[in-house]
Design a protein around this nucleic acid. Structure first.
Lengths: 125, 125, 125, 125
DNA sequence: GTGGTCTAGACCACC
DNA sequence: GTGGTCTAGACCACA
């Protein structure tokens, strides 16, 4: 997996994990990949994944069963949406709008790009 | 000026300077505030502003005339838009689109929020 | 390490680092000394070395792996030679030639001095 | 006149003045251009030329006659060559040789470039 | 007055 | 352990 600069890797992984849950790829109540597995898959240090799981545990999105592994919480999707919506509206939207305005990108253009993105990202992958 | 945590102050100042130029408040070709002036105004250490000016010089958005000060480059607005557009489309838009999709926010809602934001931000300031 | 006055220390360190890479003492692709290590070794403030590494990163001569350290880029030697050659031919050679001409130093004399210098500098060090 | 970055303008002007004297364009014993004239010609601040003349006065290369102007000293050429030769051999040559070696420029190539430079610079200008 | 560099020291996030 | 940022304060060269 490739990571954006300027944003902590463990947070980007947290996003990734959240999305797997939200999209139902990692079903609620099921065991999610172990720290080592995920670290190997994403090619990062296990410590980094550990930090992600810690972070998500504190938010009660995942939970640990000792000796077995981590599980997606039953209400994980709601929790994720809640956190995300809040952060999105309060901090990301203003930045977005400012850029749209200053760069002179209008809403129809945005719409076109949006549809292309959704088709490409969530259809086959 | 108040700064967001999680993003370096000198980069936030770079944003600020860029916007002043983009909005024509600091006209192209003119001298911009001296390091010390801006530092005093924003209540930060002069070194921090120095770093901002360094950063913008490397991008040829501003240029130094020795012993006199820094000036907004003639093609600064194009340069700024170019850099910003690139970063916006490549890294910010995908994040935005993912969130829209996963949070179930549709485009009409986005449009409503956008118009409110523009009115409020760029009308009276 | 002793530094010349009149040239910024961080740039002299950049020269030093570049030469270590060019001469193969710090192999391409390998980790180079950490900021603190090099600062201690050269007896300068870590900030100064940080500035050097920043400078060389912008030129893609070295690159950072987060949490691990800085590494010499694979094509670092080419990059270094390129930058150096350009600056050398465009700004240093003209000065040199002017001086040779005005001081009446001829090429045979230059050659003699050159050979002596090379022998002395790069033989035993 | 265009100036190199990274070297003080007043020193570059001192070089220029020295060369005019060395090449006999500003004959020994004659009045040289006034501070204002030269400043206008080179498009710099008169203070900067003043600083150059101060600098050269201290080295007894030029001298001031009050109310009249500055004059090239009788032994100016020797003085200039003396200062220049010393600085050249002690500080410029080592840098030059290092670069020749590291960049892999050999002496025949240097010779070719030298001849081209001399022809172009000192023949017609 | 302008920028530019350096030190010392602190604090933080990240791997 | 790694880098990165910021402050405070000093000193200097330059126009």
């Amino acid at each position: 997996m490739e990571f954006r600069d300027r944003e902590a890797i463990y947070l980007q992984i947290a996003q990734y994990v959240s999305e797997q849950i939200l999209l139902g790829r990692w079903p609620v109540g099921d065991k999610i990949p172990s720290v080592r597995e995920l670290a190997a898959e994403l090619e990062v240090n296990p410590n980094t994944v550990m930090r992600t799981y810690d972070f998500l545990s504190q938010k009660d999105i995942i939970a640990n069963k000792r000796g077995i592994g981590y599980f997606a919480a039953d209400d994980a999707p709601d929790k994720i949406k809640g956190y995300r919506r809040e952060q999105f509206i309060e901090t990301e939207l203003p930045v977005l709008f400012r850029n749209l305005y200053l760069l002179g990108i209008d809403l129809p253009e945005l719409e076109t790009r949006y549809k292309a993105f959704i088709t490409q990202t969530f259809t086959n992958a």
